[in-house]
Write a protein that binds this DNA or RNA. Sequence first.
RNA 1: GGAGAGAUGCCAGAGUGGUUGAAUGGGACGGUCUCGAAAACCGUUUACCGACUUGUCGGUACCAGGGUUCGAAUCCCUGUCUCUCCGCCA
Length: 424
Amino acid sequence: MLQVATIRDEKERIIQGLKKRRLKNIEESIENILQLDQKRRQAQKQQDELQAEANVLAKEIGNLMKSGQREEAEQRKARTAELKKTIADLSADLSKTEENLQKALYAIPNVPETRVPEGGGADDNLTVHQHGTIPTLHAEALPHWELIKKYDIIDFDLGIKISGAGFPVYKGKGAKLQRALINFFLDEAEKQGYREIQPPIVVNEASGYGTGQLPDKEGQMYYITEDNLYMIPTAEVPITNLYRDVILSDEELPIRNVGYTPCFRREAGSWGAHVRGLNRLHQFDKVEIVQIRKPEESYQTLDEMCAYVQSLLEKLELPYRKLLLCGGDMGFNSAMTYDMEVFSAAQQRWLEVSSVSNFETFQANRLKLRYKNKEGKTQLLHTLNGSALALPRIVAAILENNQTPEGIRVPQILVPYTRFEIIS
RNA sequence: GGAGAGAUGCCAGAGUGGUUGAAUGGGACGGUCUCGAAAACCGUUUACCGACUUGUCGGUACCAGGGUUCGAAUCCCUGUCUCUCCGCCA
């Protein structure tokens, strides 16, 4: 959520920035917010003044009662009754205005950073880097959804039997490969100075609001009615919410956390031909990195996080490209996002395996995540996160790219983790 | 699931209707003392909203939401959460 004060002070910059998302009626929305804000402040001022008067009267009445001047007291009571009524009316108005303002603010996405290109969708994203060579496969090469059957390592039918579509069962070397990747990612993150966190994978409503999944995207999450809990779509939610309503001190910064969790996504209505196999699932594993930074250093951190994610892909010997997302393709909360995509050779497609974002103060404002700066002033922090990495598509790419007539070659770096070199 | 207790500042913990933003202790910060430190002593130390002369003033907040009252941390109602005991249990 944007801060009203920022909208007030930097109206033009915000409007120009939001235009890069190709949204409609930006000017009107911002104007509406400013008007509501104006109205709110006026009402508040009026109410405060009356309340101050009532507070003085209440004290006087108390003193008069003590000294037995009942009549004087009664006179003042009459005035207080009037005030009380006026204040009640004003306060009802004020709450209404505040509510409207809040709603209007919730509807505005984050402002893209200056370097973010304008655009409406994936076609306008910028490829800023590409690495690795695209493998040429042998004639009988198969897509991963065939390979997993051939080697009996991931089973969709069993998943359907016990849960439903999009809940695969990993078996034998498939399960070991998965576990190897998780351990590899966590170990690498630790070497980079991240602290490992094992959070709950269900969260309450307040956490959903904190990171912005609620109120708009409740359809994306599995919801446990009986206990009013949501199953997390990403570890970002619990790990970032650890810092909800927190004022950090200078010495506690920066925060660098990493966590492995399963992730759950309902993805209602998004099933089709291009989401076969591991490309899109209801449950999948992901290792997520989360950082909390001072505003002045957050973009340097974004670069550092990207470099780290890229290093993982290079160690896994996967060809990838790095995209700077355009305004229209970025998530609601993000100010700047880089996507990493690996090339999946049998599908001949780029698959998104990581999304690294700087949210600036957008999440922190909702979370009330602040720190005391050197001047002793409390100030909103910047939050950042990135997948490092999402497992299923990495698995898909490894299976497809590394297939040989003899079997699937495990990337060298993973062999100490899998303790086998080939899936055959 | 059953029974009981509770929720106050950075922490511990007082406070059962009137200058209580909140005693007391601890912590943190600043100062005095000291070559330096410890100890001792003195002082400071919540957040949010609003107004303007940007430092001051006003308002709000003692789990949340309602209510009683001229006045609520204090009384009443509802909800949430925590703890203890019992039950169940990886």
